[in-house]
Amino acid sequence: MTHSIEDLELIAVEIRQDIIKMLLHAGSGHSAGPLGLADIFTALYFDILKHDPKNPDWEERDMLLLSNGHCVPVRYAAMARAGYFDLSELKTLRQLGSRLQGHPERTKLPGMETTSGPLGCGLSQAAGMALAMRMNDIHHRWVYVVLGDGELDEGNIWEAAMLTSKYNLNNVIGIIDRNNIQIDGPTESVMPLDDLKAKWVSFGWHVIEIDGNNIEAVIDACAMARAVVDKPVMIIAHTIPGKGVDFMEYDFHWHGSPPNAEQAKKALRELRTLQGKIRSEHE
């Protein structure tokens, strides 16, 4: 590991600040999911993934798929912080001619492995990648796929769950952002998902449940997932939607809305305070 946990926690705060600024500038987009995923994407881009920001098509790289494409601001911010492109490009989000489309497009941005947004397609694409790797006798690359919990309503997910298990595609590692909200309300009232762990276990997966806002837990869970060889692994990462910004946390109304100028100012102030707390705790 090249970064300490403190470093990673501070990067996650910076990514959260980037998200607030990007969404304010864009005037539309999703707040809650990206903020909740900041710790997972920090862990992925700064510790877990084998990748090279200067050579996005590196043939030895791990694959990272974002199945719930609407959360892409967190990925753009993490990619910029990791060195894929300049931070200044973040403010082009959702603008005409930008490589940072409202939902991610592979053909526009190097390092974006798939085009996504319409939900439920990421796991099967990950399975397809893993099948192709097996055909090529490649066993040392991993396919990470981040899924939203709301998107588990899609039938395509469970088709893919069966296939991945059938072929024992153990280099697929799924991470469910279990934040319990979707557009119309709490997941358990829109379409109940629990017992979520039991569902995946019954589909033939090894399941690890973690606090998805704990960077160390994310890193450890992925290491454990790579060690499981007899089954694909699904990490159920419990996250707080809107994490880091008090007035957004746990509130499903922030699923698909950006902050206005005043709210952004308040959010950035809170995040600065969080930075100070992290620094003082680690002193």
């Binding site: 694959m63 492995e113 798939t114 439920g120 397609c121 099967s124 694409q125 990950a126 399975a127 397809g128 990648m129 893993a130 099948l131 192709a132 790797m133 055909m135 090529n136 039938g155 395509n156 088709e159 893919a160 069966m162 296939l163 072929y167």
Partner: peptide
């Protein structure tokens, strides 16, 4: 047989698995 995948009665999965294989250089 090693280059053939049976996805079962699941056409949404069929095409998205194909997309994933194509991403790795296959012609599915």
């Amino acid at each position: 047989p090693e280059r053939f995948v049976e996805v079962g009665v699941a056409e949404q999965n069929l095409v998205t698995v194909g997309s994933g294989m194509a991403a790795m250089g296959k012609i599915p």
